[in-house]
Write a protein that binds this DNA or RNA. Structure first.
Lengths: 348, 348
DNA sequence: TTGTTTCACTCAAGCGCTTTAGCGATCACC
DNA sequence: GGTGATCGCTAAAGCGCTTGAGTGAAACAA
């Protein structure tokens, strides 16, 4: 019979106190850098703690008024939409980098829809599980800011527009309007006059910002063959919309896809329909990833640093938790990486 | 000045006790389905709790001996390798589905390497943060099972082979050997004699299982032009290896890629080199995803249900937490979906 | 000398929950 | 009508930590 190793016991502050010959309070003061102990005692206590491999029990900490040392992240996407999206993993990876430094945990949950997401926030709050949350995919007419206000849960909205109605929320956002204007500028300069924007989910705030900007840019230039079509971000809808618009009497000469997956599906569909990219139709992907360099022609794409986006958001949240003021910070404008899928417009 | 809403207060059992006119203990008994209260009192307490929107504080629960109601998941991948991998998000989504039912949280962390991963387990354990963990990417000669044994942390290894040396760990695994054998069978039947397997990370247990099986199958059939090459799973290495093997004097007629991303990169590379898929070279991707249907030719792929994989793993872990015995369960054999990238071998 | 401060530390309560021991009331039994 | 169970409930301790209120000794001022 194999020797049953007795599971290790978690050392507590009491153990440290005993070994260091002081009271538990002294240990607490010493380890938290609070005044009330001499430097020599503090050192001794620290050494003992280290030696014992002590780590504060988050449960106990949380219970005695400190935070839960955890922040929450909810992704409201139907399971099948989750597939190939590099953005979120990169975002999370950036978030982690910042949180890990401060030994903050990330509680992660995938839910079906916005209602479930709100329920999760309520539950997390009631269960005392998180000190704050990161909110993604802000919507037009979003119920979450109000809810988080009500719960008093510190939060950073990722990708939202500045929001004066919720002074408690921090916002980290990308200038979608500016980016869209730049893309349109570029395409216009290449001679494109008929442009279709295959957008993402219609309810998302940034989708609307892009759509509005595109319309404005078109009006400014007197273009009529410009439109946005919303989708669910899936390759299937991307392909379907591509098929439809390219099959129209006056097909667009340029397509802007709101993510890399749809852009890829779009290029494949265009090829099937006998359109050559970029000779017949130019394609821009709103999101750069390995995918864009994995098919020929390489896709021209708007590149933003999603990892840094995550880091920024996490930093804002920790600042908020430290009692700092809510802020609105803008991340750098995405850069358009011109590869092979964009070129001069050619009348067919 | 806007009315500053006072942040909501978390209701506690004491509140319930007061409103229901019983002691806190009675409330505890009532809400946890324990004997010691009459049915009528239990109902009343339940109603009051519901009405107050009460939820148990996980901190307090954890402190008084119950678990932390949280399970941990560490992904040890360098940030830049995270990109386009549909597998993990799907896995996590399956895990969540099961955990959410039981109101278990998922603490998620991305780290650089195995050593960091072990450190995270130690910290989580010491901080009393998780009741159990899900371990992915098991390696040959993996330090994690020993560590988890030592900590007495319940765990399920995802993708590992059955491991008799760690009777405390559950294992959920896919039969890579069987799948590889089936793939080779299929390719052999199509006339392929020179096959290269562009494998994933060499240190991973399933990579080795696939490599060993391929070698065994080749030997069994007396094939000499069969080999495995390990990579880091990136499109870059996938492309590089493809370039190298297709440039050799006697290039393979079939390529097996250990993930979808490399397969895609491989197809693109083959095309650049003047190889037509599948006429000149057949391609199989070990992992089916939207990607496989996003380029022409559509990729033949081994399809497994990653979401269900996650569900199964999570179920095993909850069973373990409930005091059940450690088990080894095998998920269904991946199916080979034949699309357009595989065909009869042709000598060049 | 005595009174006042400061310093280094200890005591004890409390966070929200579980759980064991115990208590009075009801009920069954012979 | 007394004995013992059983039932429905309460009291209190304890989980590991923080924190405000002490406390005794040394340092200083009057």
């Amino acid at each position: 019979m194999p020797a049953k190793r007795s599971p290790a016991r978690r050392p507590t502050m009491k153990d440290i106190a005993r070994r260091a010959g002081v009271s538990e309070s002294a240990v607490s003061f010493a380890l938290n850098g609070r005044p009330g102990v001499s430097e020599v005692t503090r050192d001794r206590v620290r050494r003992v703690a280290e030696q014992l491999g002590w780590r504060p029990s988050t449960a106990a900490r949380a219970l005695s008024g400190e935070g839960a040392a955890t922040i929450g992240f909810v992704l409201a996407r139907p399971a099948d939409t989750l597939g190939v999206d590099s953005f979120f993993l990169q975002l999370v990876s950036g978030i982690q980098e910042v949180l890990a430094e401060r030994h903050l945990g990330l509680l992660f949950q995938v839910v079906e829809d916005l209602a479930d997401e709100c329920a999760v926030y309520r539950r997390w709050w009631a269960e005392h599980r998180v000190d704050g949350v990161l909110v993604v995919d802000p919507r037009t007419d979003d119920p979450r800011p109000d809810l988080l206000d009500e719960l008093g849960l510190p939060a950073v909205v990722i990708g939202g527009a500045p929001d004066e109605r919720h002074p408690g929320l921090s916002t980290v956002w990308a200038d979608d309007a500016g980016a869209m204007a730049a893309v349109v500028d570029g395409l216009y300069a290449l001679g494109h006059r008929r442009i279709v924007h295959i957008a993402g989910l219609s309810g998302l705030a940034h989708t609307q910002r892009r759509i509005r900007t595109l319309r404005a840019e078109a009006e400014r230039r007197g273009l009529t063959g410009v439109e946005s079509v919303t989708t669910d971000y899936s390759d299937a809808e991307g392909a379907a919309v591509t098929r439809r618009v390219l099959g129209s009497p006056a097909p667009p000469t340029a397509l802007i896809y709101d993510n890399d997956v749809m852009a890829l599906a779009g290029v494949a569909t265009a090829a099937e329909l006998g359109f050559t990219v970029p000779a017949d139709v130019s394609v821009v992907a709103w999101e750069d990833s390995a995918l864009c360099r994995m098919v020929r022609p390489w896709l021209s794409a708007l590149s933003r640093d999603s990892v840094e986006f995550g880091r920024t958001a996490a930093r804002e949240l920790t600042a908020l938790l430290d009692g700092g003021p809510a802020r609105t910070v803008r991340v750098p404008l995405p850069r358009l990486i011109e590869r092979e899928s964009t070129g001069a417009a050619r009348e067919r």
